[in-house]
Every structure is written in C-alpha cells, then in structure tokens.
C-alpha cells in the first residue's frame, strides 16, 4: 500500500503543476499563488544550499576545527558580513569593499580565461585546411565553417559601417547567425516539449494512474 506521505506528495505536485498551467487560460489567482510559492521555496532552497554547501565547509568548519591555520578566513568572513550590510540603506556603502574584491577577481580571471578558451582556442579551431579533410562533404563543411566564422565576426565589427564589401560579408554573417539561432531554438523547443511530456506522464501516470 502506498503510504499517506507519498500520496500527499503526488497530490501537492499535481496541484502545483495544474496551478502553473492555469496561466495558459489567463493570469489568475491559482497561478499567482503557485508562482509566489515557487519564488519563496526557491529562495529558501538556495539560501539553505549556500549555507550548507558553501559557507559551512569553506568558512565556519575551517575556523572552528583549526583556527590557527585558518585565521585569515576571518577577512572574507568580515567582508561577507559587510556585504550583508547592504540590506540596511544606512550602511550599504560597506558593501562596496567586498563587491570590489569580487569584481576585481572576476575581471582578472575572466580576462585571462576568456582570452584563452573563447578567443585563442576558437581561432585555432577555425584555422583548418579543408583540403586535408579526406571527404568532399567534410571539406565543404569546413569551408562553410571558415566563411561563417569570419563573416559572423565581421557582423559584430561595428567600427566600420556595414556597406559595400563589408556590408555583404556582414549579411552573410547574419545568415550563419540565424542558422545558429534556429538550431538553438530547435533544441530549446525539444527540451521544453520533453519537460511537458514528463509533466503529462506524471499527471496521467503517478497522479491519475491512467498510464501503466
């Protein structure tokens, strides 16, 4: 026999799903209610998740178990508390210092890592010789790859007006970008439809028991 708490869980899930889907008819109290519950539960989930998986193991545990070796962690702890001061308008200026450290660290890291992975590595991957590909289809594809990457980049180059030869290349770039967006759109649609199928399976199977 299925126990009470499992059945209750299924009913909660089914009502939550139907409340969210009621938006397809129009904005209504059921949707608004479910939406706000989602906001509240989601915020509390990430709050608790951060405490247990980030702050306790990286800060509190280390300070409690071996303070002498980890006393320097008091600095990020203090900066973290200064960050929380942003909640009080009178002391929100204190939050500028931890934000400064985060921005500086992120900017420094991003500059080097994006340069390496997103620029240099991508350029290297595009520097291919189609004549060495071994098959006509792959060679054709590689020519498309080179032309598409260069023309796409020309489209993003705004320091020169897009007219004449530059305009023509930029227009070719738009075509490749549209193909890319189309593929992304197709995959997004498939992912969402897969979620929809999952929801229908839950409602018709777990909840109503119509699917075996």
């Amino acid at each position: 026999m299925t126990d009470f708490w499992t059945v209750l869980g299924i009913w909660i899930g089914a009502l939550a799903t139907l409340s969210i889907w009621s938006f397809l008819y129009k904005d209504n109290p059921f949707y608004k209610f479910a939406e706000q519950i989602f906001v509240g539960v989601s915020a509390a989930y990430w709050f608790i998740f951060t405490i247990y998986n980030v702050l306790i193991p990286n800060l509190f545990d280390k300070l409690i178990t071996d303070f002498n070796s980890n006393w320097l962690l008091l600095i990020p702890g203090l900066l973290g508390i200064m960050m929380l001061m942003k909640i009080f308008p009178k002391y929100d200026w204190l939050g500028k210092y931890p934000i400064a450290l985060m921005i500086g660290t992120t900017a420094g890291l991003s500059l080097v890592r994006f340069l390496e992975t997103d620029v240099i590595n991508q350029i290297i991957a595009t520097m291919i010789n189609p004549l060495n590909s071994g098959s006509a289809v792959v060679a054709f594809g590689q020519v498309i790859l080179i032309v598409g990457t260069i023309s796409g980049l020309v489209y993003f180059y705004f320091s020169k007006k897009h007219e004449g030869f530059t305009g023509g290349v930029a227009k070719t770039g738009i075509i490749f970008l549209m193909v890319s967006f189309g593929a992304a759109f197709g995959f997004t649609a498939m992912a969402r439809i897969s979620l929809l199928i999952g929801r229908l399976q839950f409602l018709l199977g777990d909840w109503l028991g119509l699917l075996r």
Binding site: V54, L55, L59, P76, I87, G95, P98, L101, T105
Partner: peptide, 18 residues
Amino acid sequence: LESWFLIIAGFAIVLGQL
C-alpha cells in the same frame, strides 16, 4: 583570493535571498 571569492559569493547569494 579565489577561496575568499567563493565565501563572499556565498554571502552575496544570502544577501540576494534576504
């Protein structure tokens, strides 16, 4: 600095929820 960043980012998430 990276480990400090992780801790401060944790506080930033808490700040967002608060």
